[in-house]
């Protein structure tokens, strides 16, 4: 396997808080790599540095062999990195389909196109519909995003990540706030993506993590204390001490 994403000695602190402390990590093409860790461990901060929303203090991020540490967020998205948000982040004033179609549009060349009505461009709409169908939101396509439930918003986040056709999906707690049945469905669905997409999965739900992940990294106080297969992580004393034991 080849490293799709390579993180080297990444550091980031906010005032006195070191949110990312010398993090090095590789994500292989096609794997689901989970990051687990207690609240405030720095998981979201790490994702933000990978997608370009935050600048690291030091260290490098390499994607497909190119150093992208100083690339802007929109440029990284175009290279094939997408992110779902821990706290739902959608365009609430637009329809569900519009939101997802924008993700398709973003990968379809520049958008300095002023004449044709965007809602009449078939391939944008069709691809968006296909992503909505995959997450089971098809019948909600024409509803206003603000009218959907929390669970449906989480599904939209996934649909958008799919529609962007990104090679690397950074999913920040996609199960947050979902009921057991909804979580179960999402796990089943993410399994079907295995091999097609590379996923960096941040998740608190241990059942989901152990069911999905090829490899797991444990982040505590901004530091990676262990990386390994689910079995290795389960039997790692440090991890049990620092994290799993506390659950």
């Amino acid at each position: 396997m080849v490293a799709l994403l390579k993180i080297d000695a990444l550091c980031k602190s906010f005032g006195g808080v070191t949110a990312t402390d010398d993090v090095s990590l590789t994500v292989e093409a096609g794997e689901i790599h989970a990051i687990i860790g207690p609240n405030g461990a720095g998981k979201t901060t790490l994702v933000a540095q990978l997608c370009g929303a935050l600048k690291p203090d030091s260290g490098t991020v390499t994607f497909k062999g190119a150093n992208i540490t100083n690339r802007a967020a929109h440029a990284r998205a175009r290279l094939g990195i997408t992110r779902s948000f821990q706290i739902t982040s959608l365009v609430m004033s637009m329809s569900v389909l519009d939101n997802v179609a924008l993700a398709v549009q973003a990968q379809d060349g520049h958008s300095f196109r002023f004449l044709k009505p965007a809602r009449k461009i078939k391939h944008l709409r069709d691809e968006a519909m296909e992503s909505l169908r995959m997450v089971g939101l098809r019948r909600r396509a024409n509803d206003l995003t603000s009218e959907l439930s929390h669970g449906e918003h989480r599904q939209m986040e996934i649909a958008i990540a799919l529609a962007s056709r990104a090679q690397l999906m950074l999913l920040d707690e996609p199960m947050a706030g979902l009921g057991p049945e909804e979580s179960g469905n999402l796990v089943t669905f993410l399994k079907t993506l295995k091999g097609e997409r590379t996923i960096l999965l941040i998740e608190h739900d241990m059942d989901a993590v152990f069911a999905l992940a090829d490899r797991i990294s444990v982040l505590v106080y901004g530091r990676i204390i262990a990386t390994g297969t689910p079995d290795e992580i389960r039997s790692n004393d440090d991890v049990r001490h620092a994290y799993l034991g506390e659950e």
Binding site: C51, A73, H74, A77, S89, V91, M92, A103, S111, I160
Partner: peptide
Amino acid sequence: MVLQGAKGNNERMVTLGF
């Protein structure tokens, strides 16, 4: 659509690649 999307949620639009 990009303009309206940025009005509704700029961070999301940037994350999409705009």
